[in-house]
Design a protein around this nucleic acid. Structure first.
Length: 426
RNA sequence: AGAGAGGUGGCCGAGUGGUUGAAGGCGCACGCCUGGAAAGUGUGUAUAUCCCCAAAGGAUAUCGAGGGUUCGAAUCCCUCUCUCUCUGCCA
């Protein structure tokens, strides 16, 4: 949520920012925010004044009663009724305007960082870096992973269909072992990079959904458990970042660094087709997420640090990769700047997104009421960042496809200790 | 799931309708004292919003959350929620 005081101070920048995202009527919406906020303040002032008067009267009545001046007290009581009515009225107007204000604010996305490229589609994302080797070619057959997993019997989609539904596969034998191994490897790497490991709940309440910005924007993307009013998480970002909701963190405790593995659940409504076959898109998948809460001054430096962390992971797995900076139109609702990581899948001859690393600046912290207390006791909103390090299924798809050989699939060296085997054989 | 008890400031804890935003204690910060420290002593010590360029100051709200009664509620009523104890069930 955009902080109103910032909008007021940097009006032009906010208009331009929203327009860059292709938001229509950006200026009009922002102006409406300022007008409504102004009105809100006026009403607040009036209401406070009325309440002040009535508080004074109440105290008078109290002391009159104590002095035994009954008649005078009764008289004073009459005066309060008009004040009471007035305050009721003002209260109604105030909450009405507050709702209108929130409505606009909740539905405006974050302002893109100035370096974010202009553009409205994926094709306009800027390629920041491509791994420095030429894309390897395979000799002989190159099978897509959905054929390989059947051949080696490591993932079973049919069984998933039977037991749950499409997009919920079973991982079996060495496939299951590979999942577990990667999770452990990614977590270990995060821990040695200074992240505190967390095992968060995988369902969250509504307040948490609002806190990180999944609600009200992405209602339809999350599985909702109606009986208990809770949502299954689309990413560990939600519970982990919400740990700090309504917190005031002393500046010297920053940065806060957390990492956690969770299954992630996405309904991905209406997005099924040929290009999302196999592991390319699932309703449930595993991901290790890294989250940082930092001083605003340092957030872009931290973003770079997180990008390096993810890059090192992908490199260590020996996968061809590239890094994209998302253009304004492709940027997530809450993000100011996002880098996507893609790995190349040789058999599919496609780039697959495996990580997304973002700086949300104050957008989430404003919703979360997550603040930093500085040296002189001054408070300000923190910056929040997160990144996938990494999401498993597409990494797995690329590993299987790129390392396939005659009769076996080789596993990257870094995973050997985690797997207990060095290749998958039939 | 059933029965009972209870949620007060960073923590403990008093408070059952009228200067109680909240006694007292602990903790913390700053000062005094001391050669230094401890002890002692003094002062300060919540959050949000509004007024204000800012500071200072003032106002309003907040004693689990929401609603109600009342001129006035931490204190009374209702709903929800969480914690603890006992019983039940369970990995």
């Amino acid at each position: 949520m955009l902080p109103v005081s910032d909008i007021e101070r940097n009006f032009e920048r906010f208009v331009k920012g929203l327009e860059k995202r292709g938001i229509e009527n950006a200026e009009k919406s922002l102006k409406a925010i300022l007008t409504k906020d102004k009105l809100r303040r006026v009403l607040r002032g009036e209401l406070d004044e009325v309440l002040h008067e009535s508080n004074i009267l109440s105290k008078e009545i109290g002391s009159l009663f104590q002095q035994g001046k009954r008649a005078e007290a009764e008289e004073a009581k009459c005066k309060t009724s008009s004040l009471k009515e007035k305050s009721k009225e003002l209260n109604g107007e105030l909450s009405h305007i507050q709702n209108e204000l929130n409505d606009i604010l909740f539905n405006l996305p974050n302002i893109p960082h100035e370096s974010v490229p202009v553009g409205s589609t994926k094709e306009e994302n800027k390629i920041v870096k491509v791994f420095d080797e030429t894309i390897p070619q395979l000799k002989g057959d190159k099978k897509p992973h959905w054929e390989l997993i059947e051949e080696y019997d490591i993932i079973d989609f049919e069984l998933g269909n039977k037991v749950t539904g499409a997009g919920f596969p079973f991982y079996k034998g060495k496939g299951a072992r590979l999942v577990r191994g990667m999770i452990n490897y990614f977590l270990d790497e995060a821990v040695s990079a200074g992240y505190d490991e967390i095992q968060p709940p995988i369902v969250i309440n509504e307040a948490s959904g609002y806190g990180t910005g999944q609600l009200p924007d992405k209602e339809g993307q999350m599985y909702y458990l109606e009986a208990d009013g809770i949502y299954m998480i689309p990413t560990a970002e939600v519970p982990i970042t919400n740990m700090y909701r309504d917190k005031i963190i002393p500046a010297d405790r920053l940065p806060l660094k957390n990492a956690g593995h969770t299954p992630c659940f996405r309904r991905e409504a209406g997005s099924w087709g040929a290009h999302v076959r196999g592991l390319n898109r699932l309703h449930q998948f595993d991901k290790v997420e890294i989250v940082q809460i930092v001083d605003p001054e340092k957030s872009y430096q931290v973003l770079d640090e997180m990008v390096s962390h993810v890059e090192a992971l992908i490199k260590s797995l020996g996968l061809p990769y590239r890094i994209l900076q998302l253009c304004a139109g492709d940027l997530g609702f809450t993000s100011a700047l996002t880098y996507d990581f893609e790995v190349y899948s040789i058999a599919q001859e496609r780039w697959l997104e495996v990580s997304s690393v973002s700086n949300f600046e104050t957008y989430q912290s404003n919703r979360l009421k997550l603040r930093i207390r500085g040296k002189e006791g001054k408070k300000r909103l923190a910056h929040t960042l997160n990144g996938s390090a990494l999401a498993l299924p597409r990494v797995m798809a690329a590993l299987l496809e790129n390392n396939q050989a005659e009769g076996s699939i080789k596993m990257p060296k870094v995973l050997h200790p985690y797997l207990g085997f060095s290749k998958i054989i039939k």
